[in-house]
């Protein structure tokens, strides 16, 4: 790339270089976790064509696979699209080569989270809030999730208009529901933490 720090790049094209060991190892790990092979993809575009969120994606599913095929791991892991994937499984269901694209996007998202490359802060914050409720109480604590999510994403008054109507309909409780076995659940979280994302 460019020589000095802060200097402008001189590149006029993507420099296709032989894949490095770490890139190879990363892709192999992602493939194993997702249970699929990216080399099967012949870039037909059916996944992106059926993807309901593709309109909002910088690198829709086909392009993510293309990036991985060319070893461009960094671009893929920094993509916003892996966070916008709704896991609707339409791509996997229709792929003519049987590539499990949904699992691939999932695996990429987890890898991005682990590496701290959180391109979409809101969705990551939502997941974090959701899981903290489960960790502490064994079940989701919707009121807590909303509060935590709103605060952490700086949207203090988001959905406030719905709060009271929800309460009036008995659809949200202020207090969390605690299960008896919540220690067991906490232990699950701790054990998983120890594994650090490895299978």
């Amino acid at each position: 790339m460019s020589g000095k720090k802060g200097a402008k790049t001189v590149e006029t094209a993507v420099k296709l270089t032989p894949i490095t060991e770490s890139q190879k190892e990363f892709i192999s790990r992602i493939e194993k976790e997702a249970g699929t092979s990216i080399h099967l993809c012949y870039q037909c575009g059916k996944c992106t064509a059926g993807c309901p969120a593709a309109f909002a994606m910088d690198y829709p599913p086909r392009k993510i696979i293309r990036l991985l095929q060319l070893g461009m791991v960094d671009t893929a892991i920094n993509a916003e699209s892996i966070w916008l994937c709704a896991s609707c499984e339409t791509c996997t269901a229709r792929c003519p080569k049987g590539v499990n694209i949904a699992s691939l996007m999932d695996a990429m998202r987890r890898a991005a989270l682990k590496q701290g490359k959180i391109t979409d802060k809101k969705i990551a914050a939502f997941n974090k809030g959701f899981l903290s409720g489960v960790k502490n109480f064994g079940r989701t604590y919707e009121a807590g999730l909303t509060l935590q999510y709103n605060l952490s994403t700086g949207q203090l008054f988001k959905d406030m208009a719905l709060g009271l109507p929800m309460m009036n309909r008995g659809k949200v409780s202020i207090f969390p529901e605690r299960i008896k076995g919540r220690d067991e659940v906490k232990k699950i979280f701790e054990k998983v933490q120890q594994l650090g994302g490895e299978e």
Binding site: S87, N127, L131, V134, E199
Partner: peptide, 25 residues
Amino acid sequence: DDWNCCGATSAHSTDKMLSLALPAR
């Protein structure tokens, strides 16, 4: 009896083993 949250989308978006362990219980 004393069921726990399955983890839904948030679990499998965060950690694979977590997303399997929660429903497994």
